[in-house]
């Protein structure tokens, strides 16, 4: 589904590469974990997969088409959904409005279908009453669930998440991971999580470690 071909990235000087010659393949229906120490470049790699940036060398292909051909804005709009450590929700909107807005932007199949959104939210433990509250009034765990529900309601086949459990306690961490698993297995989506917690990585289908500028499949 998603392939990296000889991908390399550096910031200022070509000699100081974060990673080089990366050839990885990510398949739908699986939950991946990219682990590595802080500053190793795993978040930068995720931003390349999410279409937030372009690799300095090599190509990334989605369903066999290079992202440069799809166009990054188009790719982000239709093919990928992102979840971040700080949830990335619009604070002035309710959970329901947040999801409906994202669905409208990405032109999801169930756009404007409130019942569908309530149903998805209900599945991940957010009831109607909570769904109508401004997201700022929800707990961190609840906000992250809303962010995951947003990826579930949008039709993107690829979900990338940067430290999605970074702000959560242990119980919420496991619950959120279960939700990601459900997204991957039940919705047949490809979910890629970046984390520095080995405990989180161990619960994923496959672990990829970024160490000494190289990706190692575990």
């Amino acid at each position: 589904m998603l392939k990296t071909k000889n991908v390399a990235y550096w910031y200022d000087k070509k000699e100081h590469k974060l990673f080089d010659n990366v050839n990885l393949e990510f398949k739908e229906g699986k939950l991946y974990a990219i682990i590595g120490s802080s500053g190793s470049g795993k978040t930068t790699f995720l931003s390349l997969l999410g279409g937030l940036d372009k690799p300095r060398a090599g190509t990334i292909e989605f369903q066999g088409v290079p992202l440069s051909k799809i166009g990054l804005t188009n790719y982000r709009n239709h093919d990928v959904s992102m979840v971040f450590q700080s949830y990335n929700l619009f604070p002035y909107m309710s959970a329901l409005e947040n999801i409906l807005t994202a669905m409208a932007i990405t032109k999801a199949e169930h756009v404007h279908d409130k019942d569908y959104v309530f149903e998805v939210l209900e599945k991940i433990g957010i009831n109607k009453e909570m769904a109508k509250k401004k997201v700022g009034r929800l707990s961190g765990g609840q906000q992250q669930r809303v962010a995951i529900a947003r990826t579930m309601c949008c039709d993107a086949k690829l979900v990338v998440a940067d430290e999605p459990t970074g702000n959560l306690d242990e119980q919420n961490t496991f619950e959120v991971l279960d939700l990601f698993k459900a997204v991957a297995h039940e919705q047949n989506k490809c979910v890629i999580i970046v984390t520095h917690e080995s405990m989180v990585a161990q619960r994923c289908d496959q672990q990829i470690e970024l160490k000494n500028n190289e990706f190692l499949i575990k």
Binding site: N74, Y75, R76, N77, M82, N88, A102, I105, T106
Partner: peptide, 13 residues
């Protein structure tokens, strides 16, 4: 800025 970033990450023009 953050809100704009989120919108752009969702692929908003």
């Amino acid at each position: 800025r953050y809100e704009i970033g989120v919108l752009l990450s969702l692929g908003e023009k």
